[in-house]
Write a protein that binds this DNA or RNA. Structure first.
Length: 621
DNA sequence: ATAGGGTTAG
């Protein structure tokens, strides 16, 4: 317990120590009396002055001089002094592991406390492997680890990504009977989660006798990493009904992320209310997460309301708002927000520029985009990363400059990833560039990253050119290479629950009604001039069920479900994990007029807002 | 005589 105010005591006592260092002090007791005289008014009589001094020192040179003092007075091997000294030098703020490991190796018989300090410090350093090695050395020298040792060394294993090491530790925890320590088990959950052993992580949670808030939070993060986003939302209710924990701000942060991913506006609003009730809505990080959630749910007014209400906005808040405006199709407003941000004196970072550049690409602002791309490194000293290049490639690709985009990718200092090639492939699809499309597919294959969707794009290019021979070839290629077509999935939120649909889905409990509704919608839309595009955009690769496959795309099923289950005039919000196709785009556009409903579809790239037969994005792409 | 652990916004 630090019963003293560290600044003044350490300085005055230290001055004394330094002055005494010059004089040869060979009597320890004499030394201590001096300390007591100088610091006694600052702490209780029982506290050792030298220990207090070590603990409260806020300057590294002072600590090193204390080290010299310990050696001079043969106190170095005394754990009373050595432990706090090691603690001070090894852990932050000083965190000098080179120095710490040297003094540690000179200490004759370290006990579990001192090992713990070192292992913990290694876990926080950039050489966490040493922590694990020290743990093994500790076992060899016969020192028994305690619960904390396991916790610290598990962190080391998480950092170095050692599955085997962690498993060993888990076994040892069971052997030593430390499995009742909830905090330790929480660390262990994180370990399994970071090694993608989600089942194991959940098992640890299940076996916990008492689960506090943080244990639940870690479980939510496990679900999120495992992409079980929907189940993560379900945990909120389970947490509420559990009496020994309460959802805190961290819970809300993660849930808001989950809502953003799922387009779960109603649930997001519920979390927002919870934040208000508990006073979390004043915190900057919560507000920033709210801005993102509302923008990703296509609700810009709400996002802006939160943004406006913030007393203080940092670069994250501005970037969230700029990206939200960008992805919802308000490119010019995003740029305006960017200028405003600089006016009020917040400096942009790399992610801000990702937002600004994506604003340009989503709104087709070619010149502005190039201008920002150049000024980014010249004026702001931010070198472009893969995301920035991706936006520019998208921008040029949409403008038809596919070859220039290809050259830009090849000239990058960073290694091109699958996403950027895929962006270019999308552009090839718009501009019917079959040859370049083939080259891009090859690049994706080199990266071992080719997906069914990529081949489908290539397929689209050939079929739009009427090159049926090549279409057959691609199909064969996919078959030979064992490319699985993962069906696209659309989700819609209804009464606080997320409903999932894939094409030709028959799993929904109300499937009969949904298909009937869809048939009726199709009839109504046909009267209004809707013609299904059956050739160019065939996502399903099967040969026989072309028309059927197309008329029951996942987004159409989701829309039909919404028409069926919500009163007339209600907005329809659909999230889709892949791109929306031309046919479904037309479908939604005409439906928005015929049924007088606002339709918001978020696909993997952007939002499509449909109102009164028009789309917020100029056209399909 | 005995310090100390887990989740988290763009």
């Amino acid at each position: 317990m630090r019963a003293i105010s560290p600044q003044c005591s350490s300085v005055s006592a230290f001055r004394w120590l330094s002055s005494q260092a010059a004089v040869r002090v060979d009597n320890h007791r004499q030394c201590l009396t001096g300390f007591t005289n100088h610091t006694s008014h600052l702490h209780t009589e029982k506290t050792e002055p030298l220990i207090s001094l070590i603990k409260s020192t806020s300057s590294k040179p002072h600590l090193l001089q204390i080290h010299a003092h310990l050696i001079r007075n043969s106190l170095f091997q005394d754990p009373i002094y050595f432990s706090p000294f090691l603690f001070g030098i090894a852990l932050p703020p000083f965190h000098d592991l080179g120095y710490a490991s040297q003094v540690f190796s000179k200490f004759r018989k370290p006990d579990v406390f001192q090992y713990n300090i070192m292992i913990r410090a290694y876990g926080m350093s950039d050489s966490p492997g040493n922590g694990f090695m020290l743990y093994q050395e500790m076992l060899r020298s016969g020192v028994s680890p305690n619960s904390l040792t396991s916790s610290f060394v598990t962190n080391c294993c998480i950092k170095i990504g050692s599955l085997f090491g962690g498993l060993q530790i888990h076994a040892r925890i069971l052997r030593d009977g430390h499995q009742s320590d909830g905090r330790l088990l929480t660390t262990l959950m994180d370990f399994y989660s970071s090694n993608e052993k989600y089942t194991e992580a959940c098992k640890v949670f299940d076996e916990m006798s008492h689960r506090d808030t943080i244990a639940w939070n870690v479980l939510i993060s496990v679900y999120m990493r495992n992409r079980r986003t929907r189940d993560a939302l379900g945990l909120f209710d389970m947490m509420q009904s559990s009496y020994d924990c309460q959802s805190d701000d961290v819970t809300c942060l993660m849930l808001l992320q989950a809502c953003a991913n799922l387009n779960a506006l109603a649930f997001g609003e519920r979390v927002h209310r919870y934040c208000e009730e508990h006073g979390f809505d004043k915190a900057m990080n919560i507000c920033n997460a709210l801005i993102t959630m509302y923008s990703r749910c296509g609700c810009l007014e709400k996002a802006f309301e939160v943004f406006k209400g913030m007393t203080e906005k940092d670069v994250v808040s501005w970037t969230a708002m700029i990206s939200g405006l960008a992805s919802n199709g308000y490119g010019r407003d995003a740029i305006e927000a960017f200028r405003e941000m600089q006016r009020v004196g917040v400096s942009p970072d790399d992610q801000t520029f990702t937002g600004v550049l994506s604003a340009c690409s989503h709104s087709g602002l070619l010149d502005e985009g190039r201008m920002f791309f150049n000024s980014m490194s010249k004026e702001f000293g931010i070198s472009p990363n893969i995301h920035h290049y991706g936006c520019v490639v998208d921008l040029m690709g949409r403008a038809g400059m596919v070859d220039e985009a290809y050259n830009l990718i090849n000239s990058m200092k960073v290694k091109p990833d699958a996403t950027i090639w895929r962006t270019l492939l999308g552009a090839c699809r718009i501009h019917h560039q079959a040859e370049l499309g083939e080259q891009v597919i090859e690049r994706l294959i080199e990266l071992k990253a080719q997906e069914a969707g990529d081949y489908v794009l290539l397929l689209n290019i050939y079929s739009s050119l009427g090159d049926w021979g090549k279409v057959v070839n691609v199909r064969k290629m996919m078959k030979d290479r064992g490319i699985q077509t993962n069906p696209a999935c659309s989700t819609i939120e209804f009464r606080g629950k997320i409903h999932e649909f894939v094409a030709n889905d028959f799993s929904h409990p109300r499937k009969t009604e949904i298909y009937e509704t869809l048939d009726e919608i199709n009839q109504q839309l046909r009267i209004a001039g809707y013609v299904a595009e059956t050739v160019a955009e065939l996502h399903n690769v099967g040969t026989e069920e072309k028309q059927i496959a197309l008329s029951y795309h996942s987004e159409k099923l989701a829309i039909a479900f919404a028409v069926l289950s919500t009163p007339p005039g209600t907005s329809i919000r659909v999230a889709k994990d892949l791109r929306i196709c031309v046919d479904c785009h037309n479908f939604a556009k005409i439906l928005s007029a015929v049924y007088s409903r606002e339709v918001v579809i978020r696909d993997r790239n952007r939002f499509h807002h449909f109102r009164e037969g028009r789309c917020s994005c100029n056209d399909y792409w």
